[in-house]
Design a binder for these strands. Sequence first.
RNA 1: GGCCCCUUCGUCUAAGGGUUAGGACGCGGCCCUUUCACGGCUGAAAUACGGGUUCGAAUCCCGUAGGGGUCACCA
Length: 445
Amino acid sequence: MTIKTRFAPSPTGHLHVGNIRTALHNWMFAKKQGGVFLLRLDDTDAERSKEEYVTAIREDLAWLGMAPDEEQRQSARFDRYEAQLEKLKASGRVYPAYETAQELDLKRKIQLGRGKPPIYDRAALALADAEMAAFEAQGRKPHWRFKLDHEVPITWTDLIRGDQHFNPALLSDPVIRREDGSWLYILPSAIDDIDMEITHVVRGEDHVANTAVQIQMFRALGAEPPEFAHEALLVGTEGKLSKRLGSLGVSSFRERQIEPQAIIALLARIGTSDPVEPIVAVEPLIATFDFSRFGRAPARFDKEELAQLNQKIVHLLDYDEVQRRLPEDMDAAAWEVIRPNLHDMGNVDQWWQVVTGPVPVAELSPEDREFLSIAHARLEELEASDYLWKSLTDALKDATGRKGKPLFMPLRQALTGLDHGPDMNALLPLIGKAAALARLAKAAA
RNA sequence: GGCCCCUUCGUCUAAGGGUUAGGACGCGGCCCUUUCACGGCUGAAAUACGGGUUCGAAUCCCGUAGGGGUCACCA
């Protein structure tokens, strides 16, 4: 049997870290088994679903390198849901209810006030035909609920959480369809999982109770439930499931010059017993992916940790991977020289500026300026070569007796305008003899 | 409030009765580098609390505290 996972976001907003993590785990699990990764847009809510978010979700997944193998959307399958609902009606597993949202809300408040769990009381189940007819006569239309079988305990072995047990009597019969005919996600999701032959449902632990309900739905529809893996949610650095985390999307990562590889490397490992490591290629990440390594406690997502990982990732990036984002005339050799000093890809221009100039003129003492004019004279006599820096500093050592910091720091400042930066041995050939002479002359003046 | 899950260095975690409680990230120090960074080495750093069970508990049991989730005509 081929493995098939699905990522089922509702296009009511952009993907955020939590979403991305879930998508990633679905994708990695499928890839590890040579399976299929399905993107299913849960757009049953026509009010809130927007086409721009559909596009954004596709683009974000592609940018992260996990384009789906297949795409489906629930809005195209309403006929199918209708047909399946009829079957459930026929087998008595769904029933009409006429309460208004306000009435239900009131009931819940009363239950809560009494210290009881706010579970639907199944009043609609006791309705006589005449009462229903009366509601219909008033023009009231029913919404539909799925009838949980209270006699059958719900159990499954979760790939992350282990054996799970739910008492169906402690769960509300879920509303599956509104009076206006629109669908709630829970039944369509189960129908889709069956029809699309999903073998593994990987989602956040906020769905465990839904899974309990859906397991009865699968069975009521004559299907065996798939495997389930519910992962612990991500929390922010404050320890709470932060609102800020919900707004951290791909666009904010792009703005902050975070490479997709860094996001993948962090999200693949965070909350697992494997260490978060700067790994650029996705294959080793996939190879170590294993649900048994997932912790059950919420993991902390730290933007700072992501930034640090990103820096290490940048230091591992090959020239061909970044070439199209580099200044046009920057070659592989220059990339190698500049790369170790990068904080993120946003620093490239700054360092390339140091090579191509112009650079700011350093403030120097009269002694240093005199030293630099000697340096200028010596450099003029030298051949441009890969060892230009060594030849120059050797010559100056002999000529002036300077050594150590007093020897090289004025040179670095004159040549780069900065007191830190890439190795001058590598940098000077990049700057070139002519430009170096000009900078020395300017700083000595 | 009911139900479910969780609690080991700052962070992510390993160790399912006997360990100097291990690793990774971060942090400190040293080395390398005629700068910064990179890299190498090294150090500090944890079993939430209280009771049991046991020769022996991070590990099993109970309780307390704390955290997370859920209990929608959202997904």
